[in-house]
Design a protein around this nucleic acid. Structure first.
Lengths: 135, 135
DNA sequence: TTGGTTGCAAATTCTTTGCAGCTCT
DNA sequence: AGAGCTGCAAAGAATTTGCAACCAA
């Protein structure tokens, strides 16, 4: 988890980070790959995966595991919650959820908390509409 | 996501649910497979996966995606938070975290929330001890 | 009876990795 | 110069699926 080696700033790594920072869609590695490729056609998917892992270990991006087996990525490090649609899988930021107090965890059970994650699971408006078109 | 067909109660399905209900370790499909197999040696891993998906769709169990690519499963449907160790991956229940109010999500952005998930990520006591034995 | 379910094995999907050559620092 | 990084392709891990036989309702 902790990276001991000094990392370099390559064009590939910079583009991966820039691309992720430029979106709020919590994309997959594949999506990032396709978008970086528009600016650097020679980049490979493996490099995108490797760089996402490096950036995650450096604390610059966050890996989201929500539903399904595909990881999603987020460069927004500010405390915020997510809404996940069970049907279409879309992930939306939810502002205004107050951070929880976790000091008790250290005192009670000895766990050291680095960050928290709050997800709401349900149905997004457009999926709701499609499910009950007559109601 | 919504299952339209009538499901049956097979011995395999009952054993999967019983096994998951009998533990608080948030196990993987593989773990459940190994434990069900002690009581029913003929069961296959594919059947465990299929049954977990059926039970999830019926709302009887919950699929947890926390870290890594492996799904974990939980038959405890009561509202509770989790602590996830970034090093060893252990998942512990955290009691006493008050459920968040999500009514605003429906009013503000039209999302219908079915349930919420609260995870604390950090280091568990035993991993903390191993990381800093001298400090 | 019959349609959901099973075991088996192959297929899929997502992610990681070995390697030889390249490039930041 | 050299340690980290890349593209490529193959490997790996987790999960799903097609099929014929089976069995719960």
């Amino acid at each position: 988890m902790v990276r001991k080696v000094r990392t370099r700033e390559t064009r590939q790594r910079r583009l991966v980070l820039e691309t992720l920072r430029a979106t709020k869609t919590h994309p997959t590695a594949e999506w990032i790959f396709e978008h970086v490729r528009e600016r650097m056609p020679s980049i490979s998917l493996g490099t995108v995966y490797r760089n996402l892992n490096v950036l995650r270990d450096e604390g610059l991006v966050r890996e989201l595991r929500v539903n399904g087996r595909t990881a999603h990525w987020d460069a927004d490090l500010s405390p915020h919650a997510h809404f996940v649609c069970a049907t279409c899988g879309v992930i939306r930021d939810v502002e205004g959820v107050p951070p929880l107090d976790w000091r008790g965890l250290k005192d009670l059970v000895g766990c050291e908390v680095h960050h928290q994650r709050i997800d709401f699971h349900g149905e997004c408006p457009s999926c709701l509409r499609q499910q009950e078109p007559s109601n």
